[in-house]
């Protein structure tokens, strides 16, 4: 069951589209449900599809096509580091290895306590602030140094 809060947010997104185009809100609806539940299970996707009167497979297609949706658990905090060229040139490799050592996990792994998951991201469109990473998709941290990464992780504990 979608929560009343999620439904309220999805209903707001629906106001952006013609009444006969409910499916258009699926990008937002999946984002809203993922933010609330941490990741998108088959059941979550199915609930979204039902609410938007669209085939379940069409919602799954969207959820699996865009890489900020997570179809498996990602722990409490998903850290996505950009390693694309502009970040690479400003030593994102150092940030990645620092995070891997610090958290004791590789890409796409979750720490034993279920707190952190590390992901490799593609270009986030903020290359002036390279190297950078996002936490749970929506908080971006730029001009990273190993020290700054430590501060960010500390604040997440």
């Amino acid at each position: 069951m979608l929560s009343p809060q999620a439904i309220e947010k999805i209903d707001y997104e629906l106001t952006k589209y013609p009444a006969d185009q409910r499916q258009a809100a699926v990008m937002s609806a999946l984002r809203i449900v993922q933010t609330e539940r941490g990741w998108l299970s088959k059941e979550s996707i199915s609930e979204v599809a039902q609410y938007l009167s669209m085939p379940e497979i069409a919602a799954l297609e969207v959820a699996s096509f865009y890489n900020m949706y997570d179809l498996s658990p990602v722990g409490k905090y998903k850290i996505t580091v950009c390693t694309n060229i502009s970040c690479m040139l400003r030593d994102s490799d150092e940030i990645v290895s620092h995070l891997q050592t610090k958290l004791g996990v590789g890409f796409n792994e979750v720490t034993a306590d279920g707190k952190f998951c590390l992901k490799e991201g593609e270009c986030m469109g903020a290359c002036g602030g390279a190297p950078l990473m996002t936490v749970n998709n929506h908080a971006m941290h730029e001009f990273l140094t190993p020290e700054k990464v430590d501060e960010i992780l500390e604040a997440l504990k």
Partner: peptide, 19 residues
């Protein structure tokens, strides 16, 4: 929500339509 291809205008339109 994470797809470079949506910068292509017709892919972007598909995405607006929820695809």
């Amino acid at each position: 929500y994470g797809a470079y291809i949506c910068g292509e205008e017709t892919a972007l339109i598909e995405s607006i339509e929820g695809k």
